[in-house]
C-alpha cells in the first residue's frame, strides 16, 4: 500500500492485480525457517501461487476466481450447517430448514455413507456434515514417518483430523503431486486399535480387524477414509512430534488440488495444537502474505509471532470442544468512521476465524451497511463500476489507473482489538478491471 491515512489507503495498480502463478516466487523477508526461540516456524505459501510445490499441478492452470469463490461458498455453507446442528443442540431451538442457496447440488448429509467398507469386514462409516475444503487455501510442507517423507498439505483451522493419502491406496486415491506416504516403510508407524481411547476422539469412526478407522467428509462431497494411525510428524528440521495421531487415507476423493492431505489446526481433540499441547502450550500463529507470490509463516509454540499486546487480543468464545475458533465481532469502521450497526446483529450470529475460508462472511445487515459506506466513499472518487464477481457484488474497473485510493476497513472485536484490514484484504481482484470489495453477506441474520 503506497500510503495509509486514517480514512483511506492508496493501492498501486500492480498491488491490485493477483500475481499469475507463472510469476516468480517473492523471496521471503526475515523469515527464519526452523526453530524460533521457543517454537517452530514453517513457511506458508498459496496453493496456486508460484511458490507452491504444487504450482504446476493441473498442468499449470489454477482454478478460476469463479471456481475459487464457488468452492468458498460451499465451505461457508458447510460450516454454517455444522454450526447450526451443534448450536441447535446447545440452544435447543430447531433451526429453520432453508434450501441451500448454492448453485450446485449439495450432497445431503443423509446421503449413503461414503465410508463404504474398506474391506468386506470393515464397518461402514456414517456420513458427517464435515467441512468444505475450498480451493483458495494455503499449504505447508510437513515430514511424516521415519525416515521422514515430505508432504505438501493444506492447513486448516476449520478442521481437526490431519490425514494424508497412503499406500497401498486400497480403494481409491485422487492424483497427488508427491509420492504417497507408505506406512510400511516407516519404522515408527503403528495403527491405533479400536479399543484405544484415541479412537473415541474421532468425530466419525469405525473399526476394521481391530484397527480404528477414521472418516472425514467435506461439504463439497470430498472425503477421506482410512486407518487412524500414529507416526512421527516433523514440522521443521529441528522439531518433531513422536506418536502424532493422523489419518492414513485408503479411500480419498475430491477437490484437494493434488495436495497430499490436510493438517488440522482446529480446537478438537485430534487436531495438531491439541495433540501437541504439552509441547507448544496450545499456541500457534499464522500469517498469510499480501500476494499469492509471497511467503507467510505457520508458527508453533509460545514464541509464535511477535508478542501480541493485550490491546490486540480478543477472547476465544464458545468452549464446546468443537473445532471452530469463535470470536466476538462487535463493529466495523469504514474510512475511520464506526458504522451504526446494532450489537445484536453480531451477537445473534456469532463469528468464527477460519483459515480455510477466503472471503469474510457477515450478517446481511452488517454487510449492507459496510457496502453502502464503502460505495459512497468510493463514488466520491468517480471510479467506474464493474460487474459482480460471483458472490462479490461491489466491483470497480481500475483500468488505466496507476494507483487508487480506497476507504480503510477495520473489524472491531470484543476486548477492543481492531483488525485494520490490509489494503490487500479490502479488495479481491480477478483483474484490474474487476476489483471488488472482498466481503460478502450471509443469507440470514442468524446464519
Amino acid at each position: 500500500a503506497a500510503g495509509r491515512g486514517h480514512d483511506h489507503v492508496v493501492l498501486r495498480a500492480e498491488d491490485v492485480l493477483p500475481s499469475p502463478s507463472s510469476s516468480s516466487c517473492d523471496t521471503p523477508r526475515e523469515h527464519k525457517h526452523g526453530a524460533t526461540s521457543s517454537g517452530t516456524r514453517m513457511p506458508i505459501v498459496h496453493r496456486h501461487g508460484p511458490c507452491s510445490p504444487l504450482a504446476d499441478a493441473h498442468g499449470g492452470k489454477p482454478p478460476s476466481h469463479e471456481e475459487i469463490l464457488d468452492a468458498d461458498q460451499n465451505r461457508a455453507e458447510s460450516i454454517q450447517r455444522r454450526v447450526s446442528t451443534t448450536t441447535t443442540a446447545a440452544r435447543g431451538k430447531p433451526k429453520r430448514n432453508r434450501p441451500s442457496p448454492s448453485r450446485r447440488q449439495q450432497p445431503s448429509s443423509s446421503a449413503p455413507a461414503p465410508g463404504a467398507s474398506l474391506s468386506s469386514s470393515a464397518a461402514s462409516l456414517p456420513a458427517s456434515s464435515g467441512r468444505a475444503l475450498g480451493t483458495g487455501n494455503y499449504v505447508v510442507t510437513i515430514g511424516l514417518g521415519t525416515p521422514a517423507g515430505r508432504y505438501t498439505v493444506v492447513f486448516d483451522t476449520g478442521s481437526d483430523t490431519t490425514w494424508v493419502q497412503c499406500e497401498p491406496c486400497v480403494v481409491v486415491c485422487y492424483e497427488q503431486q508427491e509420492k504417497l506416504f507408505d506406512p510400511a516403510r516407516s519404522s515408527t508407524d503403528a495403527n491405533i486399535s479400536c479399543a484405544a481411547p484415541a479412537c473415541s476422539d474421532l468425530y466419525t469412526k469405525g473399526c476394521s480387524g481391530g484397527h480404528c478407522l477414521y472418516g472425514v467428509q467435506y461439504g463439497d462431497g470430498s472425503y477421506s477414509i482410512g486407518f487412524f494411525a500414529m507416526d512421527t510428524l516433523t514440522l521443521s528440521s529441528y522439531d518433531a512430534i513422536k506418536g502424532f495421531r493422523f489419518g492414513c487415507g485408503e479411500r480419498n476423493e475430491g477437490l484437494f488440488g493434488e495436495a497430499a492431505g490436510l493438517l488440522g489446526l482446529g480446537r478438537g481433540k485430534t487436531s495438531l495444537p491439541v495433540q501437541a499441547y504439552d509441547k507448544y502450550g496450545g499456541v500457534f500463529a499464522h500469517c498469510f502474505p499480501a500476494r499469492s507470490s509471497g511467503t507467510g509463516y505457520l508458527d508453533f509454540g509460545p514464541g509464535s509471532s511477535p508478542a501480541v499486546s493485550t490491546k490486540l487480543t480478543t477472547p476465544m468464545l464458545v468452549d464446546n470442544g468443537l473445532t471452530f475458533y469463535y470470536v466476538g465481532l462487535t463493529g466495523i469502521r469504514v474510512g475511520g468512521k464506526l458504522l451504526s450497526i446494532p450489537p445484536s446483529v453480531f451477537t445473534t450470529a456469532g463469528t468464527i476465524v477460519d483459515s480455510g475460508t477466503v472471503i469474510t462472511r457477515l450478517p446481511p445487515a452488517a454487510y449492507s451497511s459496510l457496502r453502502s459506506a464503502f460505495a459512497s466513499a468510493i463514488a466520491a472518487r468517480g471510479y467506474k463500476k464493474a460487474p459482480a464477481l460471483s458472490l462479490l457484488d461491489t466491483c470497480y474497473d481500475f483500468t488505466g489507473m496507476s494507483q487508487v485510493a480506497i476507504p480503510t476497513v477495520s473489524l472491531l472485536f470484543q476486548g477492543g482489538a481492531s483488525l485494520d484490514v490490509d489494503a490487500s484484504g479490502i479488495i479481491y481482484a480477478a483483474s484490474v478491471s474487476q476489483a471488488c470489495l472482498g466481503f460478502a453477506a450471509n443469507e440470514e441474520d442468524d446464519d
Binding site: 501480541v308 476465544m316 477466503v358 490490509d422
Partner: peptide, 30 residues
C-alpha cells in the same frame, strides 16, 4: 455464523492461544 476469512487476515500475525482462550492480531507480521 459470520466467518473472518483469510483474505482479510493477510499480513497479520494471527495468534491462537487455546490455553488462555484468546486470539490475537499483530499487524505487519509478514
Amino acid at each position: 455464523v459470520g466467518i473472518v476469512g483469510n483474505t482479510q487476515l493477510k499480513t497479520f500475525g494471527v495468534v491462537y492461544d487455546i490455553g488462555k482462550k484468546v486470539v490475537g492480531f499483530s499487524p505487519g507480521a509478514c
